[in-house]
Structures are given as C-alpha cells and as structure tokens.
Amino acid sequence: MKTQAAVLWDYGQDWKIEELELDDPRNDEVLVRLAASGLCHSDEHVRVGDMPFDALPVIGGHEGAGVVEKVGPLVTDVKEGDHVVLSFVPACGRCEYCAKGYQSLCDQGAGIAVGLQGDGTSRHHVGGRDARLMCMLGTFSPYTVVRESSVVTIDQDIPLDKAALVGCAVTTGWGTAINAAKVSAGETVAVMGVGGVGANAVQGAKMAGASRVVAIDPSEFNRDQARRFGATHTYASVDEAREALTDLTRGKMADAALITVGVVHGEMIGEALSLVGKLGRVALTSLGSDTEDDVKMSMFEVTAYRKTIIGTLFGNANPRSDIPKLLEFYSRGELLIDELITRTYSLDQINQGYDDMREHRNVRGMILFD
C-alpha cells in the first residue's frame, strides 16, 4: 500500500513528508492503522544526531496507538480490529529478561537503534530505498508494520489519541517515580525537567504518596503545568530548589531526585545528587549524546551517605502489564492524560510541533491522523 510518513534524510535537517510504500506484514508482524502519535524529545535526539542509526533514511515516531488492520503468519496474540498501544521497547515474553520481569530490557530491544524488522529487512520504502524505523515503530505515519511483540492490546472504549501517550511519556515518567526511584508515602521528591516525561514523573510521585513534589524547570509555562499534575513547589533552577529543600526538610533534603530533562549533561548528575540526602536515590531517565561521558559528582557523598544512581529505561516498566494498568488509572480519573496534550497537529505540521516543543510551548504535542 501507499501512504505518507515523516522522514529524516540527514542529521540536523527537518522532517520531510514523503510517500511511503508499505509491504504486507510477514511472520510475527502486524499492520496498524494509527490514530495518533506523540511528539517526543527522543525523536529530536535522532534528528540532531545524538542517537545515530546505522543508515538513513529514518521514519520517526515511537509513541502511538491505533487499530490492527492485518496480521501476518504466526501471529497469535492480536487479531484484526484490536485496539493497541505501540510499546517503544518490544516485550517478547520469552527472553531471559522478560522471564525475570524486566520487559523494558527485552532482548528484542537490541533492534531499536537498527530500525529493521526481526528478520533484518524492511517493510517501509521511501524514494526507492529501505527506511529504518524509530524504535522499530515509525509512528510518524498513518500506517506502519511492526512486530507483534511491539503492540499491547487495550480496551476499545479508551480514546486512542490518549492511549498513544502511554506508549512512552506516561509510562516512562510514572515508572521513573514508581519503579525506578520507588517513591513511597511521605517522601520528598525533586523532578528535574517537566516536559511530557517529567509531568508524568510528578504524577507518579504524587500517586505514590509523596508529601512534597518539587518541580524544577527554567520554563515558566512548564512550572505552571507541573502544579496541575501534582507538584507542591516549583523552582526555575537547581540552586533555587536546593536552597528551598534545605529549609523545607530541615536539612534532610529530598529522598529522591528524578532527572527527566530534555537533554541530559554530565554536570546534572552531580546536581541531582546534591538535592538528595542520606540514602537518596537519583533516577536517570533523560538521554544525552551517545558520545558524552563526562560526569561530575561528589564521590565522597555517594559513599558516605549511601546515595544511589539508578538507570531507567521506559520507566523500568513491564509494558504488557503496566500499559493496561495505567489506562485503568486513567479511566478511573486517577491519572491525567487529556491534560498532557497541549496542541495537536497534522502530519505536515510536524516541524511546527517540534519547534513548539523546543520553545517550551507544549507539555506534549500530538499528531492526529484522519
């Protein structure tokens, strides 16, 4: 079939809308008609070259939901007509890490930076060339073919445009607080960066029962939005937050700091560590350039105060159980998702959407497909 997609031809360029020729699904693959795709900062990392692929072009997008249009041979878990969320990390359920309950580390996730199907070939073709897919999904298109392990079936009464955000931002942010930092009732939590992921980290900390949720972001818009999602205090800088935490906690400092900024740099690790006290946990979700390896921190404090730095991928979630659970929270009014969507765009407005993200005009921008 022929459709359209937002394609990156070279790093540093804008997304370009191209005609996409899409093959039928093969073994263990499904064709999905997408309803919506979120505009996540991770695709911006690809665009600027922080997360390079083996080859270009790349079809962007990794946060989407839609309806299964066709299934390939050997597909057993989904059928035509099923409503699904696309999980940006596949979960096969069979590898060692899935079997141990670490689905965000599924062995099939090794293909995320390659962007091809499981057999090493492509179903997506642009300008006569095979296209790679962001996270093996390519949701910047109204149609895509993905592996069965990358879709999670959901109830059909859940709006698909809202469900799309659980494919990345909601689960990543919420899981950073709940699964990685293991926030518990009565704790004080600092959240560095309140965009799409950070707003959900705030929500996760609030749902866990944190008594104080301190949101840190240079954008006044983001700070205002943080209060909607549960922040009790907001500050423009780490220095301001550190001084306030000293007073708020009588010198104890935060129990956990969650790094959910758009682009992480080495000095931010030390800044996050300075916000937490004894036994403090720092959960690192944000991405930076794959070449940046200079981290500055007080090694003395890590040892003497038993502080911990926790790496976090997809909120350390198990998508096959956590995605339906989060959507159940949403259905009960316990989790805000509608409020995350600041502006919506058509596919050909994608570059405007990312400009709005860079200028801090959105919590989450979203592409809606007809």
Rank of each mutant, 00 (worst) to 15 (best):
S150Y: 04
E359K: 15
K325M: 15
H83I: 12
H124C: 03
E328Q: 15
V71P: 01
N351C: 03
M366H: 09
I341A: 02
A304G: 10
I59A: 05
G266T: 01
P319A: 00
V32N: 03
H62T: 03
G353R: 01
C40Y: 08
E359T: 15
T3E: 06
L160Y: 04
E18V: 07
G118L: 12
A317V: 05
S37P: 06
A283N: 09
A210G: 04
D23N: 14
A163K: 06
T139E: 05
E19V: 13
T121G: 07
A91G: 12
R228H: 11
A201M: 07
R132A: 05
K252V: 14
R281M: 08
S141W: 00
P25F: 06
D348F: 03
P218W: 01
E220M: 09
L258S: 07
V151Q: 01
S149F: 04
G315S: 10
E220P: 03
T291A: 13
L22M: 05
L74V: 12
D255A: 02
V197Q: 02
V363Y: 02
S122E: 01
H62C: 04
S42G: 07
G81S: 09
T188F: 00
M357G: 06
V263D: 04
Q103K: 12
G204Q: 07
Y11D: 06
E80T: 14
V264E: 11
V48P: 00
G251Y: 11
R223N: 04
Q352C: 00
T139D: 08
I112K: 14
H125I: 13
G66H: 04
S149P: 08
R33Q: 12
E271M: 13
L287G: 15
G193E: 06
T246H: 14
A244W: 04
E334C: 09
S42N: 08
Y330F: 13
G315V: 03
L133N: 01
D155P: 06
N222L: 08
A6Q: 02
L248I: 11
D355R: 15
D14F: 05
M192G: 09
V197T: 00
D157T: 13
T303F: 12
E19R: 11
V194Q: 01
A5H: 01
I158E: 02
A254E: 07
Y305T: 10
Q156G: 14
A226P: 08
R343F: 14
T291H: 10
I341F: 04
D157G: 07
L86F: 09
D224H: 10
Y305Q: 15
V126A: 02
N316Q: 14
H45M: 09
P25H: 03
G230I: 04
E267R: 15
E301K: 13
H265T: 13
A5R: 00
V191H: 12
Y143P: 05
H265M: 11
M299H: 13
I112Q: 14
D355G: 10
Y354E: 06
T342L: 12
L160I: 09
T234I: 10
E267M: 12
Y354I: 04
P90K: 04
A199N: 06
V213I: 11
E96T: 15
E271R: 10
A244F: 00
R147W: 14
R223G: 03
M357S: 13
V214R: 04
G277K: 08
L340W: 10
